[in-house]
Simulated assay, not measured.
Amino acid sequence: MLRVLEGKDYNDMSRIAANMIFAQITLQPGCVLGLATGSTPIGTYNHLVECYKKGDLDFSQVTSVNLDEYRGLNGTNDQSYRYFMNEHLFHHVNIKPENTHVPDGTNPDAVKECGRYDQLIETLGGVDLQLLGLGNNGHIGFNEPDDNFEKGTHCVNLTESTIKANSRFFSSMEEVPTQAYTMGIGNILQAKKILLIVSGTAKADIVRETFTGPITPRVPASILQLHKDVILVGDKAALSKL
């Protein structure tokens, strides 16, 4: 089932998304949150930090698992997703560091690392609420357009368009990682609830394709049509063609 919530602008959309996560933590203090990185969730995290600082939100029992991490980057690298999460959320709230999980980009053994992460998610009892952004090509996590849906955590070769999109964060193209560890489509679909956030006119076409087009691995996010509980939160611009 798909529920669509529209915000007036990016800030309003971020507030609505934060309220969904706020409600999840309030109703289930020991919940497992699946978290995402990228520019879209920053506003959502800012709102959650504000709620915590006001004394309205307690992260002390929350566990988090992140969708992905660049292969080859350690958590102290300012372009790693561990660093991103520390900067935008973890270091500003009372979540226990040992309860925050991100794939280990420094593990050179892809099979071992992916197996470890799948096992971790299973041990935690799965994800209660999974936050997702949406790539311009329909990717969720780093599940890029492909000929089939990858089920579990895997090592992915990033597409040229994704590498190019990420290059704005690095001083040269040579520094941009070309691979990442990412949760698979199967991991994402097993989440009890999915919260997809989108912002801006540039996302309008892919939002429409994701939810009104065919289910195909060429548009990885289209698989969300099969999930029983998806909340799509977007600003007016991103939802304009839905």
Rank of each mutant, 00 (worst) to 15 (best):
V230W: 04
A191L: 03
I197Q: 09
L239Q: 04
E50S: 09
N143I: 03
L48N: 03
M85A: 10
D68K: 06
C51D: 07
F142Q: 10
G133T: 06
F211P: 10
F84S: 10
N166M: 13
E175R: 08
M173Y: 10
K54N: 10
D235Y: 01
L195T: 03
N148D: 14
A17E: 00
D9E: 04
M183D: 04
P29G: 04
M13S: 05
F149S: 10
E87S: 09
R218M: 15
K241V: 13
N94R: 14
Y181V: 06
N86H: 08
L189F: 09
E175T: 08
L124P: 02
D104V: 14
L5N: 00
N187L: 11
G7E: 01
L35M: 13
D128R: 12
K112P: 05
P217M: 02
C31M: 10
L132M: 06
A221T: 01
N99F: 12
V102L: 05
T123W: 13
A36C: 14
L129N: 06
V156Q: 09
C51S: 12
R82K: 14
I140D: 03
N66F: 14
M1G: 05
K8L: 10
T100F: 08
I185H: 01
K54T: 00
I185Q: 07
Q28N: 13
K203R: 02
V219D: 07
M13R: 00
E122H: 15
N66R: 04
T44Q: 06
G115K: 08
T44V: 11
E50Q: 12
L57N: 01
I25C: 07
T76Q: 12
E69A: 07
C51A: 12
T37P: 01
I223M: 07
F90T: 05
L195D: 02
K241L: 15
E69R: 08
I163Q: 10
G105A: 11
Q28M: 10
A237S: 09
S167D: 05
A204F: 04
L120Y: 06
D78T: 08
T123D: 15
K192S: 13
A191H: 01
T63W: 05
T216V: 15
P29T: 09
M20R: 05
V156L: 14
H139S: 11
S222V: 13
S222N: 09
K193M: 02
H101S: 06
Y70D: 05
H47M: 03
F90V: 07
G234P: 00
V102P: 11
G234H: 00
P177C: 14
G184I: 05
L239A: 03
H154I: 07
G30R: 07
I206V: 15
